[in-house]
């Protein structure tokens, strides 16, 4: 019964989807928005990576919301896993020497790579979220190697707050500058393609990168049974 009902629901949905997609050809022309962004993105925001100019320029407010969503998840997960009784300490086998040494060796390199990704977010593929995820993966590796090395709680809290506040305050700074709106790019845009270009975009991406790195590390920490 349940199977039949579910299949019926799915079939109806599939039929609906087919009717719509006949009108949206695959690989067709660019939308009005898309072509506008590709043509004007570099002049408007100074970023050579048009996806970045959309993410932090035209749709920067979405990204503020996105940062908030991740913040909510990190905070909520912490509340969820800290709230109850502490999990009984599990028996953990010590990691082998290869893993321990290897993770210690790779850790700084991974951090460096993550930082590279978010610093160059406006020039090359990548950005704050991707860089942050890479940094968190470095911490995950270290946790696998040796469970006692953790990101300090005070550090984590200040980076989380600092990153979020940087974003909001830069937006508000744009508001105070004459003739500008919230999150408008009030710094000089520079020459697209150079490292120091695109005004506030690299600053925001560095802030996001650090914040996301810390938050995802916190998520991993909570899921692995970290205690506060």
């Amino acid at each position: 019964m349940r199977v039949l009902l579910s299949l019926a629901v799915v079939a109806v949905l599939a039929a609906g989807i087919v009717t719509v997609l006949r009108d949206v050809p695959f690989g067709g022309n660019s939308s009005r928005l898309g072509s506008h962004f590709v043509e004007n993105g570099r002049e408007d925001t100074g970023a050579a990576n048009i996806v970045t100019s959309v993410v932090l320029g035209y749709r920067g407010f979405d990204t503020l919301g996105e940062v908030t969503v991740l913040f909510v998840a990190a905070v909520g997960l912490g509340a969820l896993l800290v709230a109850g009784e502490k999990n009984a300490p599990r028996k953990l086998e010590k990691a082998s020497m290869v893993l321990t040494t290897g993770s210690r060796f790779l850790f700084p390199l991974i951090l460096l790579f993550g930082a590279y990704i978010f610093i160059h977010g406006h020039l090359t593929p990548g950005g704050g979220f991707q860089g942050g995820a890479i940094i968190a993966s470095g911490y995950l590796l270290v946790y696998l190697g040796s469970r006692d090395r953790r990101l300090g709680k005070n550090w984590a809290a200040s980076i989380e707050t600092g990153g979020g506040l940087t974003f909001v305050l830069l937006g508000l700074a744009g508001l105070t500058a004459a003739g500008h709106w919230f999150l408008s790019n009030f710094l000089p845009l520079g020459v697209p393609g150079q490292l120091l270009s695109a005004g506030i975009i690299p600053i925001i991406y560095v802030a996001i990168g650090l914040k996301v790195g810390v938050e995802l590390t916190g998520v991993i920490d909570s899921l692995m049974g970290g205690t506060e």
Binding site: L33, V51, V55, R59
Partner: peptide, 12 residues
């Protein structure tokens, strides 16, 4: 170049 908007949406 492909449409950048959906890529930004997917990131979010």
């Amino acid at each position: 170049m492909v449409d950048p908007v959906p890529q930004a949406l997917v990131l979010t």
